[in-house]
Simulated scan of single mutants.
Amino acid sequence: RYNAELGYWLAEPYWGKGIMTQMLVLAIRSYFSHTDVIRVYANVYAGNMPSMRVLEKVGFRKCGIHRNAYFKNGNFLDCHCYELLKADFRI
């Protein structure tokens, strides 16, 4: 009840413009203000460094890696787990 999962997608022509970082800040700020959620978490495919950087810029911290957690395109991939606590959200 006090946790929420975050997911997002952005079309490739808009990558690298800071759009997702700005939108996540606005969305998370609003979400924390209007709910009793204290923790937002997100999972990222291993190798998706741009998505990991977006989460880190917003204030998320990597809290673990689940080995071989995803099966994509015929291969197992690690899942990088991130979390952001309401008490730590400063942006």
Rank of each mutant, 00 (worst) to 15 (best):
Y2T: 13
N3M: 14
N3E: 14
N3C: 11
N3T: 11
N3W: 02
A4G: 15
A4F: 06
A4H: 10
L6D: 03
L6G: 04
G7P: 08
Y8F: 15
W9G: 08
W9S: 13
W9D: 06
L10T: 15
L10S: 09
A11Y: 03
A11W: 01
E12G: 03
E12W: 03
Y14M: 09
Y14S: 08
W15Q: 06
G16A: 11
K17S: 00
K17L: 03
G18V: 01
G18I: 01
G18Y: 05
I19H: 08
I19C: 02
I19A: 04
I19P: 08
M20A: 08
M20K: 02
M20C: 09
T21F: 04
T21W: 08
T21H: 13
Q22I: 01
Q22F: 06
Q22H: 08
M23S: 14
M23F: 08
M23A: 15
M23H: 05
V25T: 06
L26D: 09
L26N: 04
A27P: 00
A27S: 11
I28F: 01
I28P: 07
R29D: 13
S30T: 02
S30Q: 03
Y31L: 12
Y31R: 01
F32C: 04
F32N: 02
F32Y: 02
F32W: 02
F32V: 01
S33G: 04
S33Q: 13
S33F: 00
T35S: 14
V37W: 00
V37L: 00
V37R: 04
I38A: 00
I38P: 00
I38V: 12
I38R: 01
R39D: 02
R39M: 03
V40R: 03
V40A: 05
Y41W: 09
A42L: 06
N43E: 10
N43C: 05
N43G: 09
N43W: 00
V44E: 02
V44I: 15
Y45A: 06
Y45I: 05
A46V: 07
A46Q: 14
A46M: 04
G47S: 12
G47T: 01
G47M: 06
G47C: 04
N48G: 06
N48W: 05
M49F: 12
M49S: 03
M49K: 10
P50Y: 10
P50R: 12
P50L: 06
P50H: 09
S51L: 12
S51E: 07
S51N: 08
M52N: 08
R53C: 04
R53A: 10
L55C: 12
L55K: 09
L55Q: 06
K57H: 13
V58A: 11
V58E: 13
G59K: 09
F60P: 15
F60W: 13
F60G: 15
R61L: 10
R61E: 13
K62S: 12
C63F: 10
C63R: 14
C63L: 05
G64E: 05
R67G: 04
R67E: 12
R67K: 15
N68E: 15
A69C: 10
Y70T: 05
F71K: 13
N73L: 12
N73T: 11
G74F: 10
L77M: 06
L77G: 01
